[in-house]
Design a protein around this nucleic acid. Structure first.
Lengths: 220, 220
DNA sequence: GTCTATACGAAGATAGAC
DNA sequence: GTCTATCTTCGTATAGAC
């Protein structure tokens, strides 16, 4: 007699999908933490559900299955990553570009430590889901940057160092504080890495790397 | 009438425990690979058994349980690590010491990439088994080195940089090639990192870091 | 010493009640 | 849309045959 099942339930929900959106956000955040901590295999849907405060089947209802949830998180992280890799040109000032690169990379790891660790765990395990990304998109990005570094060296704006190793050096140095946070905290006796620490580390890395590459100080 | 069970079996085996030794070595090597790839939770005893070419219960017979196998591997890796951290003094030449440090750290990662990744996965997951090692032994080691770096700076042998951040920089840069090997291979299009690559990377890192810290060139 | 068989819980995933 | 109940497979670990 009364409303059918579908409309009754539609009526009970908010109608604009706000609940779904909120739940999805919660699930993605919780899953990022759990996958980052235990890796793809080590993470259980149950653990993600508990972290999100939802029943297990709810996770699978929203995300289909464990695999696609994981892929979605990786893609989200790659998106954040791509967002900060805007174009640079030979005409730019090397000191400025390298400093901005180090700074934005530090901030990305800082703002998304779980995403950073998720990515690290994926690579550590042989990058089963990211092979094509690494061999395609990312490889292209590295090549194009490398060419610019080489041109800077030709113009005498910096030393002739292998640009690819330089990019890896910046990546490893900046990611370290997110990925190996447990080690950094344990050794330094801190219980968190503060904003001031991040500022000091950024300045330290910028200084060592710019000086180490013989980059001429900023024009500004 | 014939021999009792125990002696019969002793008689059948080699008697000097060579089989046991060989099996243990195989198991440890296989487990290191599997734990490195999947992390503690993600690794299954079954997968380790298959990698070692032995039945599952054999693994548990030799190692007791999954946990103690894992701990044993961590301890083995910490042992290798400690072995290369011999004493240095203020009297030594900074350039020589830092270069030797970078070189030996690169070689450790090179010779034991699975051990390196195992350690990385443990830290990534919040170092549940290594908390006390980090807060104790390793912390002490870092402090003592840091003091020496500071004294070198006071003597004008290098810039006044934060010695702890410097140690982290060297660690992250050198471990990167083992831990993120999949990324390095994907981006550079290599299918392995050769000895010559390691040599080039070592030279690159040494150059950037020494120059970046304003270390006076070697006396030799 | 070594392996097969098995106990028992937790894994991912789905069916179906509400 | 959401959750409980359940299916099947795989997890660690052990008992006991050989």
């Amino acid at each position: 007699m009364c409303l059918d099942n579908t409309s009754r339930l539609r009526g009970r929900s908010d109608g604009n999908g706000a609940t779904r959106e909120r739940n999805e956000r919660e699930i993605l955040a919780a899953a990022e933490r759990v996958f980052a901590q235990y890796g793809y295999r080590g993470a259980s849907v149950q653990a993600i559900a508990e972290a999100a405060g939802l029943p297990k089947s709810n996770i699978l209802y929203y995300m289909g299955n464990k695999r696609s949830l994981y892929v979605r998180l990786l893609e989200r992280m790659m998106g954040r990553w791509n967002a900060l890799l805007d174009d640079i040109s030979v005409e730019d000032d090397p000191a400025e570009v390298l400093e901005a690169f180090i700074r934005s990379k530090m901030q990305l790891s800082r703002q998304h430590p779980e995403g950073s660790r998720l990515f690290a765990a994926e690579i550590l395990g042989g990058a089963p889901f990211l092979q094509s990304y690494l061999r395609g998109e990312l490889r292209e990005w590295v090549s194009s940057r490398a060419r610019i570094f080489e041109q800077w060296a030709e113009r005498g704006l910096m030393d002739r160092v292998d640009p690819v190793w330089l990019i890896f050096l910046i990546w490893s140095a900046t990611q370290h504080y997110a990925d190996f946070e447990a080690q950094v905290l344990g050794i330094t006796g801190r219980d968190e890495i503060s904003d001031a620490d991040v500022e000091r580390i950024t300045a330290f890395l910028t200084r060592i790397i710019l000086k180490g590459c013989g980059v001429k100080p900023r024009k500004t």
